[in-house]
Simulated scan of single mutants.
Amino acid sequence: MIARTPSAVLGQVLGLMLSLPLAAAAQPQQQAGPSIREQEIAECRPGEIQTWGDGTDHPAVAEKLIFVYDHRGAPPWFSARLVMAALQRAAEAWSRCGVPSLVAQGVMSPALMAVNKGNVQVLWSDAETRGNFALANLSQRRLALSPAGFVLLKTRNPSYPAQETLQMAISHEMGHLYGLGAHSRRCVDVTSYYDNGKGDLCSARDRSQLKTVVEYRANLPTACDLQRCRMANGQAQAVPGINH
């Protein structure tokens, strides 16, 4: 099974987020306390967990995940250290839902993949991403990143912080490997997409806030992402009425 990232998430249309003005990300300096977006990231209120109904949540691909990163083919401005750090941040964040993980660097042969069902290959491949910035393949236990996508991002908007898109792409696809088969309908969740292409929009506590930052979606799993992960992996009770 291939867990696809919809076009509005990370781009079957690779121009996603390429023309957004970086200056729009500035937050009012006089703002006291956490913003609405920061509150949404940090807490998951009753009734806020919603999905687009485009998949089914299920346990992670293994009880313990080992993400093995192969740096071959990466864009030259992404060092192995930078990508490893992004993988570490995502893995550490997702592990809080009760599924432990490790991150390592190396080349995984089919024999090594067969040794441990928790081994996950992280690699650069346009063929495997199929027009997305990133793509998770659950049956093959791969998390692929697109060199062409990030080349296009840098070409179209060289001032845009591509490492932020990289972090979001890794965190989003890692969520599928942790068991989140459906995409969130909550705008701020890293597993979300903003609309379904049919006129339906994601939800937010105050939708006017979506215009205050370049990218409203979080770069790492939010409280609601982690709560769904706990439920999918038997670490928390399911919430009645959730559309999975």
Rank of each mutant, 00 (worst) to 15 (best):
M1Y: 12
M1V: 12
M1L: 09
I2A: 11
I2C: 03
T5I: 10
P6F: 02
L10Q: 04
L10W: 10
G15T: 08
L16S: 01
L16Y: 10
L18E: 09
L18P: 01
Q27G: 05
Q27P: 00
Q30S: 15
Q31C: 08
G33R: 08
G33I: 11
E40G: 03
A42S: 06
A42H: 09
E43C: 06
C44P: 01
C44H: 02
R45H: 10
R45Y: 03
P46S: 06
G47E: 02
E48A: 08
I49C: 09
Q50A: 14
W52R: 00
G53C: 07
T56Q: 15
T56R: 15
D57Q: 07
V61I: 12
E63G: 13
K64F: 10
K64D: 03
L65H: 09
I66S: 15
I66K: 15
V68I: 15
D70Y: 07
R72Y: 03
A74T: 03
S79W: 15
R81A: 13
M84W: 11
A85F: 06
A86D: 13
A86M: 10
A86C: 11
W94S: 00
W94I: 04
R96C: 11
C97R: 08
V99W: 12
S101W: 04
V103R: 05
V103C: 07
Q105G: 02
Q105W: 02
A111T: 06
M113Y: 07
A114S: 04
V115D: 05
N116Y: 13
G118C: 07
N119L: 14
N119H: 15
V120K: 07
V122E: 04
S125E: 04
D126V: 09
T129M: 08
T129S: 04
R130W: 02
G131Q: 04
F133L: 14
A136V: 01
S139T: 11
A144V: 01
P147A: 03
G149K: 05
L152H: 03
K154Y: 02
T155P: 00
T155M: 14
T155W: 10
R156Q: 09
S159Q: 12
S159Y: 11
P161A: 03
P161V: 09
Q163C: 01
T165Y: 14
M168C: 06
M168N: 08
M168K: 14
M174Y: 05
G175R: 02
G175T: 06
H176F: 14
G179V: 00
A182L: 05
S184Q: 05
S184Y: 02
R185H: 00
V188I: 15
V190G: 03
T191R: 14
Y193G: 03
K198F: 15
D200N: 14
D206N: 15
S208H: 06
S208P: 02
L210W: 14
R217P: 00
R217C: 01
N219V: 11
N219A: 13
L220I: 07
C224S: 11
D225H: 01
D225P: 10
A232C: 11
A232Q: 04
Q235G: 03
Q235A: 05
A236G: 02
A238Y: 13
A238S: 08
N243A: 12
H244M: 13
H244W: 15
